[in-house]
């Protein structure tokens, strides 16, 4: 038995070794050096660069402020314009807010069914890249928050409801997080969708798995921390070994207590 194993290991070690020619190596080396022209010197063992660029920092801060203002505007039920809502709520208002919160945190069976039906329609809208249809589900006050699960706290792009129909025409590259070796993940909204919400594979109806009360993992916890009053619907692709992929559709009630889409968050297995 042991001899068999050794014999097999011996055969494995004798499989041919492949290498590049010296000229090919030199050409590739030149390309790599050219590509690294702008990163001449770096600090080793540096902290994880949360915000490399001021532009990103400003954009993220603006997004956070915007979300806060929108959130405040929503719960105070005034329907006022963004930026006008700056005062602190008084005791009565706080009480109203609490009542509103309690009301919001309860979801009836009908609402549950309604959210799940909407989620299915949104799934189809995403697959068909039907931004008009998608827009019709987006939260009127909060807009649509797009992000990657791993960077939900740090990076995202938020679009107003009326911006969503033209989302695929937006050529702005947004910053979504970091990939392998800290590579910056920058995509336009179309790029984001093409990378994380592929229509004919992940969003293929054959792959469609639906779970509104997933116990599969603790993934929901971070989303709930970000959207405490939300109802989350997850579509996921069943893993076989360790590869899995999910998209979370996050719903919150609007001023009229209708559940609307506030966020699309993509998550996938990272090797």
């Amino acid at each position: 038995m042991k001899n068999n194993q050794n014999n097999l290991e011996d055969k494995l070690s004798k499989l041919p070794t492949h290498s590049m020619s010296k000229s090919k190596q030199d050409r590739m080396h030149q390309h790599i050096m050219n590509a690294l022209n702008d990163v001449e010197v770096q600090q080793p063992e540096g902290r994880h660069p949360l915000m490399k660029r001021l532009q990103i920092g400003v954009a993220s801060a603006a997004a956070i402020v915007l979300i806060s203002i929108l959130g405040l505007s929503f719960v105070m039920n005034h329907g006022e314009q963004i930026g006008e809502q700056t005062q602190t709520p008084n005791a009565n208002e706080r009480e109203n807010l609490q009542e509103q919160d309690e009301k919001n945190s309860e979801i009836t069976e009908e609402e549950q069914v309604s959210v799940e039906e909407k989620a299915t329609e949104i799934y189809d809208a995403l697959r068909n890249r039907d931004m008009d249809l998608l827009s019709s589900f987006v939260h009127s006050e909060k807009g649509l928050f797009l992000s990657l699960y791993d960077y939900i706290e740090q990076f995202s792009a938020v679009f107003e409801k009326d911006e969503v129909p033209a989302l695929l025409e937006d050529n702005t590259e947004y910053f979504w997080g970091y990939g392998d070796a800290n590579m910056e993940l920058k995509y336009t909204p179309t790029g984001y969708m093409d990378r994380y919400l592929k229509p004919d594979t992940f969003l293929n109806s054959d792959n469609k798995m639906f779970d509104s009360e997933t116990q599969r993992s603790d993934l929901n916890e971070r989303i709930q921390a970000k959207f405490p009053k939300a109802k989350i619907v997850e579509f996921y692709k069943e893993p076989v070994y360790e590869d899995w992929k999910s998209v979370f559709l996050v719903f919150e009630p609007n001023n009229a207590s209708n559940w609307e889409l506030v966020a699309i968050i993509s998550a996938e297995w990272t090797p």
């Binding site: 790599i32 590509a35 690294l36 990163v39 770096q42 600090q43 080793p44 063992e45 540096g46 994880h48 660069p49 392998d180 070796a181 800290n182 590579m183």
Partner: peptide, 8 residues
């Protein structure tokens, strides 16, 4: 990628 992420 290694060059760009060397600090990590």
């Amino acid at each position: 990628k290694a060059g760009r992420g060397l600090h990590s």
